[in-house]
């Protein structure tokens, strides 16, 4: 006897905000009537912290102490023990997305060391002979829009061998001059990062210019913290020896799930940066770093 259990959310994009109702149906499909010992639905929001392998040695003691932080949890019984008729059964449900106390619902974020995730889990208890059924479904929480208005502040930059900071042999670096502008570093998450960049001149032909989006995750507590920067995505904006003097657009769409408004809490931090990376033909790598402040409006 086959049963399928599924959770269908009302919203196609599964995005909810604090204070809203998470509504949907539990869908049961079975061919024959089905005996069960109760169906329950569980909503949970968790922050998972993990330490990077690099830091494990240092913080071994404290490693185990990093427990998931629960943001929200509630449980309802959808159906009491009984029988479900054969065919398709839809059981509607609603959850208010409210926190207890002064807890804040952080925005959904999938990172490497920090994960903020909200799930709905439906469990169906059955008699001893049959296995319990379970189904979970992630939904996405967007944090409340920021009240203050975001005023874009353009950032101009110039990259020359002289502006480089950690090059060992400054003399070996070929000459080049790149001017550019980011339209803003305090970005709205739903809008792309824009700007432009002009290669004024370069002695060695350019191989590629890329935008690297980096997350900087910090986990820690009083005893210490671990800070790790990892790449989220890398977008090439120029390939080959581009025309000098011609502005090349900088344009990057922020990916969903892997990004959230810049977040700072007592236990962890999630920040973002963008690197403008220029690869020259002789494999010189020139990087200019810009910290970003992301928000949602």
């Amino acid at each position: 006897m086959s049963v399928t259990l599924d959770i269908r959310l009302k919203r196609a994009n599964k995005v909810y905000h604090e204070g809203e109702l998470v509504a949907g149906v539990i869908l049961l499909v079975c061919k024959e009537p089905l005996q069960h010992h109760g169906v329950s639905l569980n909503l949970e929001g968790l922050v998972n912290l993990q330490l990077s392998s690099k830091s494990v040695g240092v913080f071994e003691a404290f490693y185990n102490s990093v427990k998931p932080i629960q943001l929200i949890s509630s449980n309802i019984e959808v159906a009491k023990a009984g029988k479900i008729p054969g065919g398709k059964t839809e059981i509607p449900f609603e959850f208010p997305l409210n926190t207890k106390g002064n807890k804040v619902l952080y925005e959904t974020y999938h990172g490497v060391f920090v994960n903020i995730q909200y799930t709905l889990r439906c469990d169906m208890k059955r008699s001893l002979l049959a296995k319990d059924l379970s189904r979970s479904c992630e939904f996405i929480v967007h944090s409340q829009p920021q009240k203050a208005k975001v005023v874009p502040t353009p950032v101009n930059f110039t990259i020359t061998p002289d502006t480089l900071q950690n090059s060992r042999e400054r003399s070996a670096v070929p000459k080049f001059l790149v001017r550019g502008k980011l339209d803003a570093t305090n970005c709205v998450i739903s809008q792309p990062l824009t700007g432009e960049l002009v290669v004024e001149n370069s002695d060695v032909p350019i191989k590629s210019i890329e935008l690297q989006l980096v997350r900087v995750e910090t986990c820690g507590c009083a005893e210490g913290y671990a800070r790790d920067a990892t790449e989220i995505q890398n977008i090439q904006i120029a390939e080959g020896d581009v025309c000098h003097g011609l502005p090349i657009p900088i344009y990057m769409v922020f990916p969903r799930l892997f990004i959230c408004p810049t977040l700072e809490t007592t236990n962890f931090k999630v920040e973002f940066e963008v690197n403008v990376v220029m690869v020259l033909h002789d494999d010189h790598l020139i990087t200019e770093n810009f910290p970003l402040k992301l928000c949602r409006v």
Binding site: P205, I206, I209, Q236, I237, A238, E239, G240, D241, V242, C243, L246, P247, I248, P249, Y251
Partner: peptide, 12 residues
């Protein structure tokens, strides 16, 4: 227009 501008990044 955005794609048009993007082509500027092609060197060849």
């Amino acid at each position: 227009p955005r794609l048009t501008a993007m082509i500027r990044g092609i060197g060849d």
